[in-house]
Design a protein around this nucleic acid. Sequence first.
DNA 1: TTAATTAGTTAGCCTAACTAATTATTTATC
DNA 2: GATAAATAATTAGTTAGGCTAACTAATTAA
Lengths: 138, 138
Amino acid sequence: MIYRELFKEYHAMHRPYMNMLNELLSKHQLFSSQWGIMRTLKLEGPKNIVEIASIFYIEKPSASNLVRKLAELGYVEAVQGKDKREKIIRLTQQGETVFTEVSETIDAFLSSIVEGISEEDQRTVISALETIRKNLLK
Amino acid sequence: MIYRELFKEYHAMHRPYMNMLNELLSKHQLFSSQWGIMRTLKLEGPKNIVEIASIFYIEKPSASNLVRKLAELGYVEAVQGKDKREKIIRLTQQGETVFTEVSETIDAFLSSIVEGISEEDQRTVISALETIRKNLLK
DNA sequence: TTAATTAGTTAGCCTAACTAATTATTTATC
DNA sequence: GATAAATAATTAGTTAGGCTAACTAATTAA
């Protein structure tokens, strides 16, 4: 029954975490969902809408909307692929610059909130969360 | 930089988890936020709106709304305290019954998704999440 | 007694998701 | 090669689940 406590603590930390994350991102007119997309585009390269939806386990219209907002901010742009229906989304130059800036803020924030957790324990957490996700998807 | 991976995995599992949880709860017209309140009232006894807001790190109007919806479902009721402004919220008889029923479903679900994670590792995760929450709140 | 505080609600806003239906294009089938 | 089926993306409309500002009613402090 220890898992009860696990998910209780999970829910307890979620809102304070999201609130703080969004507060930090708001200085750049960003929200966590949009930031997630920027991070993915930076680390994994350009992606189309279907790919973005699948990476974040959201529906296409949700992904499409988030990308539209990022494009309005000037942080991403679409290039047409071979397939004329497809929009390949990538960071703009401005997006790259903002990413670098925000990345520092977020890194400082994240490293501050894991203070007191050993690297070994962090690895255990990663592996546990991964197991949970995989159990959910099967 | 291992914390980057930790929060990446955190976000990756969050949506599949919430989707499944809400799907299970929907059979009883419940959502995860409402379920959280029912669980708290069951395990910790009656609470007023301010206490509920503080436990879930949400604002008073948000707590008030969630309680109103639970009351409309007939799962909770308010009794007046000594202070006439105060509403002390508790589970109704129907709420108790539903809690027991749903609890079984949710327990089965949660235990299925932690399959493959040792109890020791689960304790490590709990302790890590708790550390993060406390770092966030200081 | 009056001012400040507190509990709760109402109204209106926003993010972040969803489904259903539509358009444009590509791929598969006959 | 024509047509049917599938796919990429969008539009329109809905919802949960938060938020702030402003309010009423009751309590506490000055």
